[in-house]
Every structure is written in C-alpha cells, then in structure tokens.
C-alpha cells in the first residue's frame, strides 16, 4: 500500500553532546513530504537541515519524536534493519560525491545494485542508470578520471540504482561550478519527473529554491516557514 506521505516527522528532536555543551540540532521539527514531491530544505548553517536529512536517511537516530518513512517508524530500527532500509528505501547523494575510488563509474552503480539483486543483468541495468544521467560513455572510467560534475552524476545514478522511493541530496552542487551544478540539478529534476522519486534537497543556496515544488525553511532546529511553488522554475533558468 503506498502512503501519500512518504515522510512524516512530528516533534522530532535531535541533541548531541559536543564536549561539555549539548547541541540541540532539532527542537521539535514537524515536516511532512508527499510522495513524488521535489522539496528543497533551506536554512543557514546550524539550522538543522543536514541533521534532518541524516535522520530521514537512517544515518543517525532522533533523540525524540516520531519519524516515519514510507509508513515505517524508523527510529526504533536496529542496525540490521537500518541497513536494509538504506538499501531499499533511500538513495543518498553527498556533497563530496563519495564514489568508491577503486571502482569504475559503472561498477559504482553495480555496487549498489549488487546489494539487493543477483544475476548477470546487473551490469546492463547499471548501464541504464548511467545512461539516465548521460554518462554511458564514461562507464569504464575511474573517479579520478571524471570531473566533479560527472562524479556527482554517477553518484545520482548509484543512488537511483535500487529505485528507492526517496532521494536525499546533501548540498549536491556545493562542490561544483554553476554550469555543472545545473547539469546535476537537471538530472535530479528528470529523476523526480520521470521516475517519480521523491527528492529532498538540502542547500544553503537560495537560488536553487525556485526549482522545487515546495521550499521548507528551517531555523534554529524547527521549520520556520514553507513556500509552495505552483510553477517550479526550469533548471536552465536558475542563476547563481
């Protein structure tokens, strides 16, 4: 059964110690994301946007509150279930790409596929995902032979490999120039539109916000305000 809301966060808190100080990264966050939405989380440093992404992605655990993804309360998952959750429900795109340096572009995508599937068709399916991001011809290149934008697009293909319902992107253009950044954003847009993946993109760059269906602004660990874009702007029109 498909839930209309893919992410439900109610009164979610996250605190962690930093030396003798306790940092309240989230102070009762309420956020709901509908299936198929393209959400941009905006906010200054320390507002809790990356923490929100980490919690939804199962990279960290909330200190309190209710967090459900695709109908499952993930806060109580043990490490084994979390690993399974990350395999099947979430695709992560990092700021620093995080490709495995000893695998080619194709193999980096295969790596993710191999976590959930078996069979000789894995390389072919991995190739399809690379085609999706326009990098089929770079399949046999290692990360050290790819540009930053190409690496990030490979990371997107890898994140999509297991067709997760949810794609989480943490500053995906943070390390890229404008043109390359647009390419990456376009790839995300295409995935959202063509594959129906829900995309949550974290950024501090307000110029990206117009491309989203909805912009959620965080401040001091809580949602400050939300803005709906009835007509999201094409990526080509974004400027920063």
């Amino acid at each position: 059964m498909a839930f209309p809301l893919i992410i439900e966060m109610q009164a979610v808190t996250k605190t962690y110690p930093m030396g003798e100080v306790t940092v309240h990264a989230l102070r009762g966050l309420n956020l709901a994301v509908a299936r198929g939405e393209f959400i941009v989380l905006l906010g200054p440093s320390g507002s809790g946007k990356t923490t929100t992404l980490n919690l939804v992605g199962g990279l960290d655990r909330p200190s309190g509150g209710h967090l459900a993804v695709d109908g499952e309360e993930i806060a109580g998952f043990n490490e084994t279930r979390l690993a399974e959750y990350r395999r099947k429900k979430v695709g992560f795109v990092f700021q620093f790409f995080n490709l495995i340096p000893t695998l080619t572009a194709l193999e980096n995508v295969e790596f993710a596929l191999a976590l959930t599937q078996r069979g000789r068709s894995i390389p072919a399916r991995a190739g399809d995902f690379l085609s999706m991001v326009g990098l089929r011809d770079r399949a046999d290149h290692f990360p050290s032979q790819l540009s930053g934008g190409e690496q990030q697009r490979v990371a997107i293909a890898r994140a999509l490999a297991n067709r997760p319902p949810l794609l989480l992107c943490d500053e995906p253009t943070g390390n890229l120039d404008v043109d390359t950044g647009r390419q990456v954003l376009q790839a995300l847009r295409d995935v959202n539109r063509d594959e129906g993946a829900t995309v949550v993109l974290v950024t501090h760059n307000t110029s990206i916000a117009p491309m989203a269906n909805r912009v959620v602004r965080l401040h001091n660990g809580m949602v400050d305000r939300e803005e709906v874009n009835p007509k999201p702007q094409p990526v080509a029109d974004l400027a920063w």
Partner: peptide, 16 residues
C-alpha cells in the same frame, strides 16, 4: 573511512 561509511550508507552491512 569515507569509503566504508559510504558503503554503509548505501546499505551495506558491516559483515559485507
């Protein structure tokens, strides 16, 4: 560290 963290983020268990 980053490579292994990424693998775990992708859903790879510590056993793998």
């Amino acid at each position: 560290k980053r490579e292994f963290a990424t693998m775990r983020s992708l859903g790879s268990g510590t056993g793998r």
